[in-house]
Design a protein around this nucleic acid. Sequence first.
DNA 1: TCATCACTTAGACAGTTGTCAAACTATCGT
DNA 2: ACGATAGTTTGACAACTGTCTAAGTGATGA
Lengths: 96, 96
Amino acid sequence: MKSKPTTVLSARAVLAISRALSDPRRYEIFRHIAAESCTACSDLRSALPITAATLSHHLKELESCGLIELARRGKFVDVTFCRSAWDAYLTELKQI
Amino acid sequence: MKSKPTTVLSARAVLAISRALSDPRRYEIFRHIAAESCTACSDLRSALPITAATLSHHLKELESCGLIELARRGKFVDVTFCRSAWDAYLTELKQI
DNA sequence: TCATCACTTAGACAGTTGTCAAACTATCGT
DNA sequence: ACGATAGTTTGACAACTGTCTAAGTGATGA
């Protein structure tokens, strides 16, 4: 009996996630987001020594591989961790 | 009670492995190795469309992050999958 | 010993990527 | 309407990386 209803990830998707995690800064950003589950963009900026432009770039990378979601809320941008994508990724790796 | 006696990976080690897996070709090579558990270098060459030099480069990358081990056996090089490193990596990621 | 085989090293090149400053867009408060 | 705030886009640059060819190393077999 399978207890995981997670989506199956293509090889491309797995690679995209691995690539996203392979940068030190992006990895740290990602861990912050995952730990908080949902953060404001500006919280990340004050927590990490990083330019707004660079943070924006990294967030877009993390979003494009499905690990996070970005949503505008007025002036701000909410960042939410997509645990389902993360679980799917781990499930895929576990098969190795 | 912990059932996993795996080594704890530093953040650097995790990053090194993620980086190693982020290249399409290297990922494919790695999966071959993991599937076979132990292969000869030349088997990989015949299984993948790749130059000897490039393969050598990728194997060294995979070795330097601890995912595989390389051992000379006469003319040949044996490639073995280090499951303990892989398990340690997954354990680390699972904590996210 | 000599040619071949299996792989490594060195060097070069093209493409990618992380980074920042500066200019831009959009929203909020006054 | 205006200025401040939050984030994005653009453009540029340096550093890195994957790839190949060519030359080198070392073992094997005749």
